[in-house]
Nucleic acid binder design. Structure first.
Ligand SMILES: [Mn+2]
Ligand SMILES: [Mn+2]
Ligand SMILES: [Zn+2]
Ligand SMILES: [Zn+2]
Lengths: 156, 156
DNA sequence: AAATTCTTGCAAGTAATTTGCAAGAGCAAG
DNA sequence: CTTGCTCTTGCAAATTACTTGCAAGAATTT
């Protein structure tokens, strides 16, 4: 029951639940209801989620009691170490999480008024500078974090 | 005693202590030992400082008892509202602060190993995309936050 | 110098994690 | 299908990083 590419139309988000679960299995980790629910919630998310949002979304999707907050915290900590998810900072008190897209990352546009977060579908403009940081500054494993803030059309 | 551009050689960082203090005065605010010490510390800083770092640096520079943490917090809150300083997020637990450069902002390069922070003296590559977010996405007052992470030459 | 108003230190309060630990749940064996 | 070994989870307590209330103290004005 481990299809990797079998499904109908729609754009495929690179990572499937099975792919991720296999990754966990490969690390000797267990496939628990909580982890399955969390991964399902992340796959369905249209924007980065806070720990509390993940907790609620996972509970709904799996039609089960919401997980304990500490559990969500530790699952996300694990998924982050495995590079399956990444934590992002949107200028709020809480951190948010989203699945890593190994092929093409995206940056974010946050409305400073209503809090809406858009995932930008624009080519990332900083790759050249990133290369320069490697070549001329001598840095290794260079990554970046880029988010835009502004007032969305609805909020003006 | 309010020189705005009078001094010797060296590259001038746009904002002088007097300029800032005049700005505070203009808002009906008082020139206190603490504020003077904090501004002096910020002007001397070679990288963004955390509240605790500001507290210590300000104490040393003014050769006085370190300020209370809450005081530093409130002074920075005020300076931020006046757009004199800005808070930045370097992927750490604490926020960091630095003086705003009204002429040309800079982005940051953080070593994920030793924590060193470099202020990049490179043209910012995201202005075109920022314009597009205004024109085609309809966002107003668009700003951005961009930081790079990697392992510095010393840490490899 | 006195009055006025803004600031500060100190202590208490919050919000968001982060951790310890014993009970519970996967999963490989038998 | 039951057992045993380990990994996970829930619950409560601990931490970290702010954030706020308030009365004493300091900067300016009069
Ligand atoms: Mn990018
Ligand atoms: Mn920039
Ligand atoms: Zn909005
Ligand atoms: Zn380093």
């Amino acid at each position: 029951m481990s299809r990797t590419h079998a499904h109908g139309a729609s754009t495929l988000p690179t990572l499937s639940a099975d792919t991720i679960l296999d990754l966990l299995r490969g690390q000797g980790m267990r496939i628990t209801r909580g982890r399955v629910a969390i991964i399902s919630a992340l796959l369905a998310a249209k924007a980065p989620l806070s720990l509390e949002e993940i907790r609620v979304a996972a509970g709904k999707r799996a039609r089960q009691e919401p997980l304990d907050f500490a559990t969500v915290y530790r699952v996300m900590e694990t998924l982050e170490e495995l590079k399956i998810v990444q934590k992002i900072h949107l200028g709020r008190a809480r951190s948010h999480y989203e699945l890593v897209d190994p092929h093409a990352h995206h940056d974010h546009l946050v409305c400073t008024d209503c809090g809406k977060v858009e995932m930008l579908d624009e080519p990332c403009p900083v790759e050249p500078l990133e290369r320069k940081l490697r070549r001329h500054y001598g840095y290794a494993e260079v990554k970046h974090s880029l988010e835009f803030f502004g007032r969305c059309p609805d909020c003006q």
